[in-house]
Amino acid sequence: MVDLWSGLVQAFWLVATLDSELVEIAMRSLRVSLSALGIASIIAMPLAALLAVKRFRWRRFVIAVLNALMGLPPVVVGLVVYVFLSRSGPLGVFGLLFTPTAMVIAQVIIVVPLIASISHQALRDLWEEYHDLLISLNVTQWQKIHTLLWDARRALLTAALAGFGRAIGEVGAIMVVGGNIDHATRVLTTAIALETGKGDFALALALGFVLIALAISVSLTIHWLSRTEREAKW
């Protein structure tokens, strides 16, 4: 109890004084997860739009794979990425293992299925609504996708935020491929795991506060966005 209390007090001071180690770790977390989010969105959203408007042979298969990937434990994703990036693996020559890049790759794989399937639902509904008009106007495939992505932008933002929440709170995969190396690949979640293991509750708790604050603000934003979406109907 005493441990916990003094931990809390110290944690508060770490946050209040913007402790340099804390800031460094939080910033790296943000950098890795935001990069992963950006790349994942660029892959997932056009893919979702394509799945919504195009009837191709592998469509059902791709949707099934996305759903399956969504249920994959992150630590398994980490393991697979590890195998590919390890020195003897197919991508070993790039020397990416235990770098932030490796963590970004792992998070992209984890987040793409989530963003794609949330986006796909929204885009499919919108396509159902727009179908007759867009067909009648003879739009090209590209105009179709562009129109849907633009008019569903709020729903897509919600999808992106959900992806960010998943990425920033994820620990299994980045622990495996990043290695939790001090000043190199240590991020919020892996640092919390480490400090808790060492019994250094102050830093662990301070890191935890930051993480919780991030998570809460993300989910509040999602909540607010989906409410305004329903009210404004756009």
Binding site: L126, E129, Y130, D132, L133, S136, N138, T147, D151, K233, W234
Partner: peptide
């Protein structure tokens, strides 16, 4: 391209 269609239930773009 020289035709247009007004549907029984109008389609409104969310714009």
């Amino acid at each position: 391209r020289a035709q247009a269609f007004v549907f029984q239930r109008p389609v409104m773009l969310r714009r």
